[in-house]
Simulated assay, not measured.
Amino acid sequence: MLKLPPHGPQQRIGLFGGSFNPAHEGHRQVALYAMKRLQLDWVWWLVSPQNPLKSSAETSDYAERMALTKFMANHPRFVVTDIEKQIGSRYTAETLRVLKQHSDAEFIWIMGADSLGSLSRWYQWTEIMGDMQIAVLARPGYSIRALSSKAAIRYQHKRIPGDRPQALGSKAPPRWVFISMPLRKESSTALRAVAKPFHAASKFW
């Protein structure tokens, strides 16, 4: 049986999905900014068992990623959950369908600008746009590419002005908004690159 985090009917919940490989302060700032600008009741951090667009060889142990994500998501209105592992989902489209079947909350998918740029490569990406309203948060070096991406162009007429992100949810999807925010330089890729020499050196101690 699917175990969802505690929440109330019609609450606004941000779904912040990703590998979090590893989670870092940049992720936390995105979640905080999204919660404030979108006027969310909760932000659920959905730790994916495996991103289908990335190599499993580059993905750390699931339990380790969950533990670090819980450490980074230190806020009373943040919840780290293994929903995708519970339902055996590797695809966002599947996860969203299951969540909508099991809850009447108002869900908003939160993603970084880099994810919008590659959204057209996601499994059933048009179904994702049709099922869930989406908030896209700026990331260093990705904003221009994201806003000129296939997904952004196709759904340009469904974009909500960035100065009114709280309006997301007032109409049925597809609806999305691009939110500018103070940018941070952290990235999971860079952190993994730094960690590799450390792990290699630790074998000799």
Rank of each mutant, 00 (worst) to 15 (best):
I83A: 03
K3Y: 13
Y62N: 05
E127N: 12
F178W: 13
T95K: 12
R12M: 00
K70L: 15
S118Q: 10
A57M: 14
P5N: 15
R184D: 13
S170I: 06
N21A: 09
L147K: 08
L147I: 03
L119F: 11
E186H: 14
K36M: 04
M132I: 14
Q86G: 10
A195P: 01
W122Y: 07
W109G: 02
S89Q: 00
V79F: 15
S148V: 10
H7E: 02
S115V: 08
V47K: 08
R12W: 05
S55K: 08
L168M: 06
S202L: 15
T92P: 09
S103H: 03
W205Q: 14
P165C: 03
L137M: 10
I179L: 15
R184F: 15
A200L: 06
F71P: 10
K3R: 12
R77P: 01
R28G: 00
V47P: 00
M129D: 13
P22N: 01
K3M: 04
V79Q: 14
A31H: 02
F178T: 00
A57E: 13
A138Q: 12
R65Q: 01
Y33P: 02
D131T: 07
M1E: 08
W125T: 09
G18T: 06
S19N: 01
I83S: 03
G18H: 02
L183K: 09
P6I: 13
T69H: 07
Q86D: 04
H27E: 08
Y155F: 14
S187P: 05
A63L: 07
P76Y: 01
Q86F: 11
E64T: 11
G88Y: 04
V43Y: 00
A23I: 03
D61V: 15
M66W: 10
P197C: 04
L38Y: 01
G8L: 15
E64N: 15
T59Y: 01
M181A: 08
P182H: 11
L137K: 01
Q10W: 09
L4Q: 04
W205C: 15
P161N: 09
F71K: 14
G17E: 11
A172L: 14
Q10P: 03
L147V: 03
S148C: 13
S120G: 11
P6W: 10
R164Y: 07
I134V: 10
K36E: 12
R97K: 13
V177L: 08
I83L: 11
I110R: 02
R121M: 06
T92G: 00
G8N: 08
A193I: 11
T69M: 09
T95D: 06
